[in-house]
Design a protein around this nucleic acid. Sequence first.
DNA 1: CTGAAAGCGCTTACAG
DNA 2: CTGAAAGCGCTTACAG
Lengths: 349, 349
Amino acid sequence: MHKPAKVTIEDVAAAAGVSRQTVSRVINNGPNVKPAVRQRVEAMVEQLGYVPNLSARRMGGARSYLILSINDRARTFENWTSGRGNDWVDQMLYGGMSECERHNYHMVLELIDTDAGTTIPQIARAVGSLRPDGVILTPPHCDNLELVAWLERQGIPCARVGHYEGGNFVDVFMDDEGAMREVTRHLLDLGHRSIGFLAGPLNYGPSQKRRKAFREALAEAGIPPEAGPIGAGNFYFDMAVSVLETMLAAPSPPTAIIADNDKMAFAALHVAADRGLKVPDDLSVISFEDTPGVRFSVPPLTAIRQPTAAMVGKACAQLIALSKGEEGMGAFELPYEFVVRATTKAPRG
Amino acid sequence: MHKPAKVTIEDVAAAAGVSRQTVSRVINNGPNVKPAVRQRVEAMVEQLGYVPNLSARRMGGARSYLILSINDRARTFENWTSGRGNDWVDQMLYGGMSECERHNYHMVLELIDTDAGTTIPQIARAVGSLRPDGVILTPPHCDNLELVAWLERQGIPCARVGHYEGGNFVDVFMDDEGAMREVTRHLLDLGHRSIGFLAGPLNYGPSQKRRKAFREALAEAGIPPEAGPIGAGNFYFDMAVSVLETMLAAPSPPTAIIADNDKMAFAALHVAADRGLKVPDDLSVISFEDTPGVRFSVPPLTAIRQPTAAMVGKACAQLIALSKGEEGMGAFELPYEFVVRATTKAPRG
DNA sequence: CTGAAAGCGCTTACAG
DNA sequence: CTGAAAGCGCTTACAG
């Protein structure tokens, strides 16, 4: 059976002996089609192998069936080229594509620079050419006020991953403060009385929340601020190393380190080895990320597993609902996991 | 400056005082536009922030500026859910998106099942709705004759990653025979006189080539076939373990193992440890894949690094050229890398 | 419940 | 070198 290269709605209409609006109603599950007619049309769609052309639907005024997912360009490329894997993107695609599949949507990933002057023009290009039904913003783009305002002006529904505000957005996030409290308490319960936090950059929303929760948890336990140093990291290995060196050179250095991401946790492992500190015997380490490398590191890291796939999946679901004219805006919290592996233990002595 | 939500070609034409065809010519770099007019139009495009609507361009008869990239659905999901990372997909996105970016193209990834009955309908849906300018097929889809024939009938340019034939396709691949020769010689040069090859399945094209090259390289060095055992693996850990057990139980067992992929190389490390063999002192191991896990394994594996990103990038480049009406079909070999790390050494004695 | 009309924003021949 | 016309394949009001 050699099907013609391009079957259009007109072909189906002719084959079924109806007008093209009727076919349109059938494929869009519209009302007002006699069951017998609907069946006849469906049979023809099947037989001719008709698939509606997305561009034409779009031009006709329908939705685009496209979700545009925006990631930090430089960081994503960096992860890819370093060959260290890119679990965040993997999980994002996993969650997003699974959800999009279910609704016959397509997810397109675009990498956008974070420089002040280029972000908006780049997104404008992507949005203008693709005209997606919704845009998913991940850190740090989701915290870019100017960008978010621009998107709002364009009237494009926007989901933010790792942002809490809600309002006229689809915000999906995990309880960063709760996670930090849980992690800090875990260390306190083990007996640690001096804990260092290797924090991420200040413009990362979640990092801010974690800083706050970290301070609070220590304060509640009666630990003085000096015994809870916060090192300002940038999520990269090298800087984390030097910050750690300083932290550990203090008169009464921390016996445990909480790292805001994996690379910095690895840095902690590295620095510990350099100084002859055994992990977890001499130094406990916890990561706030849980990529494959972490699970297979030696020793395997105790870590917070972020619900990346679930967050992005939820973002897609809400954006798709919105595009159908349903309700969808709001703030949605997804559960994280705290995975205790082999890098935390009671301090010596 | 509050720009209108949707600037069309008509707005630009009006602002520049020309017809919309002239604007069309300018944005498509067409000929026959007076320089002064071109400049005026470009200025207006810039000022109004005009971005052509892809759907409209498509409907007008232009290309879609979309490359559809097809991956094995089950395997991709498996890798994502197992949390082991998915370096292949990462590298594919890296190579593909980098190239697409340069041409203002968008890459859309779709996961398609490999079951005989569902592959074509699924692809038909994706292709029919997206109407991409080209499709990239990765293993095992690239070896699906029925699928490839279907795509050819649809007249959609198709690139195959890891396929050698060329012809009416864009085939991108690496020199598997050369890589195997290099790897084998590396071991021979170190003094190994008995080498085992843990091969992939017979229906996997590249594995076939590697088997052949392996046999030839040994023959050239005057190594008898008994000292170059080939174990038939299936790319998975468990089977590799049992094949290796047998290999190493031989009267004069190999002092080096070449594994056709990472999982089997890990199996070699595992079996060696079980038998009290130190790597590389008692057993050298080389992998024919180089995912992040390999690089960070203990000890780090000596491996062939496949040019995944480069292959996919090249595939995109050719597909894009084709869509512009340029030549593009053919077979393209991309260079692999042989990365010597810590698992190869001269044999004992 | 169904169809004839208009239009989405472009591009491609075709005229001039 | 430039523009008026037709059309891509749909959908959305609108009419019946």
